[in-house]
Amino acid sequence: MPLFSAPAVNAVAVEERAAALAKRSIKKGAKVAGLKLSISMMDLTTLEGKDTAGKVRQMCRKAVTPMDSDPTLPSCAAVCVYPNFVTIAKAALEGSAVKVASVATAFPSGQSPIAVKLDDVRRAVEFGADEIDMVIDRGAMLSGDYAKVFDEIAATKEACGPAHLKVILETGELGSYDVVRKASDLAIAAGADFIKTSTGKIQPAATPPVTLVMLEAIRDHFYQTGVRIGMKPAGGVRTAKQALHYLVIVKETLGDAWLTPDLFRFGASALLNDVLMQLEKERTGNYQASEDFSKD
């Protein structure tokens, strides 16, 4: 087994730092700007067995125009769907800048032969996916078979061709920040364009301290190479307040360059409406009923 080590992480201190950043007070103009920025960073997601063409089309429309009544709002960054819906999403988004991301590699468990996983990727790209969200082999990661994890990511990157690769670590299954850090370093070294916390199928999904640990891995990679890797917390980000907290963490860990959809995304389904509700509150001074926001 190849020798592979990553910097140690102190759990107590990481959680303390993430919690301290939650205390930033984001008001008025900063709140509106932050919420609009977070819309532009959203990968609007539906990953369910009961997904249908109708559901995906409706979501695509919402991604392009989050709220008809406010034309100043940006579009979301992407929609995230299963491979079977890539073609439908692609067609629905034609003419917009919204990208199509597809999960692949036997999402969410990744427990299939590598040939099947790579085929999954190639087909999604053929269907027109701009971005591929893969899962790592958590079993291999936890059993210490780092070479296998690395090789699978590298092979997936190759199979992606021009599509961007987001590597899902599924941090909720990794058990400690040390392993999260190790998996982040592995994924980055193997060719990830983005690293992503979670599938959304496992609890806990994204958390602020886990995100901070991954951002620190991205920062060290930048220090060593000058290359900027992207970050995507996914799952569990449901409120505008949480979204602003994540933006604060990014701003104060990696700085201005990462405050863009090119390098930071939210994987979420319920977040958008809460952000819209907060923006409407800032605009009108009153909270609107949840029924005032479209549930696509």
Binding site: I26, K27, G29, L37, Q224, G226, L254, G255, D256, A257
Partner: peptide
């Protein structure tokens, strides 16, 4: 070359006074 790389902590998203 990499030692000269700097992160930028500027005004990309500035907090309002609170």
């Amino acid at each position: 070359k990499t030692a000269a790389l700097a992160l930028e902590f500027g005004k990309a998203w500035e907090y309002a006074p609170a």
